[in-house]
Design a protein around this nucleic acid. Sequence first.
DNA 1: GTAACTGCAAAATATTTGCATCCTT
DNA 2: AAGGATGCAAATATTTTGCAGTTAC
Lengths: 141, 141
Amino acid sequence: MRQTQQIQQLLKRNQLSVTDSRLRILELFFQQDGALAHADIEKKSGAGFDRVTIYRTLQTFVDKGIIHTIPTADNAVRYALCKDDCTQGHHQDHHVHFVCERCSTTICLEDVEVPAIRLPEGYTASHAEVVVNGVCRNCSQ
Amino acid sequence: MRQTQQIQQLLKRNQLSVTDSRLRILELFFQQDGALAHADIEKKSGAGFDRVTIYRTLQTFVDKGIIHTIPTADNAVRYALCKDDCTQGHHQDHHVHFVCERCSTTICLEDVEVPAIRLPEGYTASHAEVVVNGVCRNCSQ
DNA sequence: GTAACTGCAAAATATTTGCATCCTT
DNA sequence: AAGGATGCAAATATTTTGCAGTTAC
């Protein structure tokens, strides 16, 4: 299978050994555009592996810059794939996140830039997160 | 005391009975510009009242539109006072939130508007959240 | 073979719920 | 007095940690 090879290379590029759980969790991310929360992965993976492994795998991926967290106002942190310009420990996902109010999926809008924001005197910005709520393409039909 | 009266009126205006914990929690919010997480309140309140009361009080305030949640990428939901244009169940905090990387306080920048964001075809926005990370005025000296 | 990864058990935290009691109006 | 709010206990849920066994390289 083509995709599996891609994923394996992604892992190797990040000096991570290729294991079953890592492959499967990354597959989930590649299979869908949206973001995934810990709970989603637990469900979708078919209870194949341990809860703890999911926590640790997600943390590893964040550390390596493979995925990034998306801020939310409810208590559920979501994760999404980073584009290639994220390096270890330094995420640069300068794109907008979209949360659909109907289907409640979270999507990265890679093409939408985060606009520059004018801050008051004395404030220095290093990084901005934008989360837009609304109705997504699928649900607005 | 002046402020206490203000807070009492705020509660009455929202058809909430004036109780000790509600007064004290609202005082905390008024005393500082920044946002507060559940844990902060627990500490700052001097362990005066129950954990559970804090949960319930915060939820009540959110429902009534007195405070709003601020999205974060770590697992800690923070709350901040709403301005007057928030009505019950319908928050309209169209301002930018700022998280300082040094002192890690979260501040509402009321004067900074959320810029309009151009979404791709098919997407409809109803509400956007912007969280800027950087160094705040106090810490940049 | 060795270092890294996983699963299990258990601890530590965080959040929710039920109910009896107390307080506000 | 009546309804709502609180505290306590306990049930759930979530996240972290330690360690022994397993797997990738």
